[in-house]
Amino acid sequence: MDISELAQLAQEAWFRGLAAGGFAQVSVGGGFAVSTGLDSNTENGAVVTPSVLRSPHELDVLLDWLREKAVPASVLVTGPPDPEATARLIDRGLVPERTGNNMGRVLTGAENLPASQWQISEVLDVPALRENQRVYADDGWWDEPGGLDDQVEVAARLGFGPGRPIRHWTARHQGVAVGAATSFQFGDAVLLVHCCVAAPWRRRGIGAALTRVRLAAAAGRGAVQAVLFPSPDGYQLHHSLGFELAPVRPDRCFYLY
């Protein structure tokens, strides 16, 4: 498994999923841009082929459209760009990703799901989705007014639940939500999108339990590999679960602030 290539494909598939969800978008030649309006470069961006990078007009159509949205965005290049194309993006104010890391591992059929002291349940309706997303809000993931409402609206619009590409899980202790996690299945792989454990409940195995649930669910639907974009804290957790670290492929992802 080429972890970094799989991570690139995961990001591209995520943007295509946003476009399929009917969010604002524009297409030109071999590329498209999509925006949910959320303040996140993983929820707004473009997927372009190297041929688009060689066409200044097509490239500017996508970049100008993203800038009009006034939110952070990512531009993903589907193949290795040549130095001239990379320079064109940098000249337009984009910042290349060259130092990050990805993590991945092979799934072994029906993943083990050991007994857990935590009550973990899949999100099946919008009220449960709001409870799930509030775990992130209470941890300070979204500072802007109405951030929770916006996140719930986007997540509900994309769809979720068993049999869908996007699935959410909530961990509870005595009925109180203390952890939340999301997965996105694409092809024969799964992207572990988000995971958050409330501060007082960290270092107790909740994050590991949420990860195991997501891996088992993905394996049950035919996934054979998993990938994620680790935080510093997330590295230790996922390394303990068999994930390997790999550097990003340079100049395949660019950030527009």
Rank of each mutant, 00 (worst) to 15 (best):
S4T: 14
E12A: 09
G17A: 05
G21A: 12
S35Y: 05
S40D: 14
N41A: 10
V48N: 04
V48P: 02
S51Q: 15
S51H: 15
R54T: 15
S55Q: 13
D60H: 04
L63S: 04
L66M: 15
V71L: 08
V75H: 00
V77M: 10
A85M: 07
T86I: 12
T86C: 13
R88F: 07
L94I: 01
P96V: 08
N101R: 14
M103F: 07
R105H: 06
T108F: 11
G109W: 06
G109F: 11
P114T: 11
E122G: 13
R130Q: 07
R130K: 15
Q133A: 09
V135D: 01
D138N: 12
D138M: 06
D143W: 01
G146Q: 12
Q151L: 09
V154F: 04
A156Q: 11
L158F: 01
F160W: 09
F160E: 01
P162N: 04
R164M: 11
H168T: 06
R172C: 07
H173L: 09
A177L: 03
G179S: 09
A180F: 05
A181D: 03
H194N: 15
H194F: 14
C196Y: 01
A199N: 07
P200G: 03
W201N: 06
R202D: 03
G207T: 08
A208E: 12
L210I: 07
L210M: 06
V213K: 11
Q225D: 12
Q225Y: 09
A226Y: 00
S231V: 08
G234K: 10
Y235C: 08
L237W: 04
S240N: 15
G242K: 03
G242V: 13
G242L: 05
E244N: 15
A246R: 13
V248M: 08
R252C: 11
R252W: 05
F254D: 01
F254K: 03
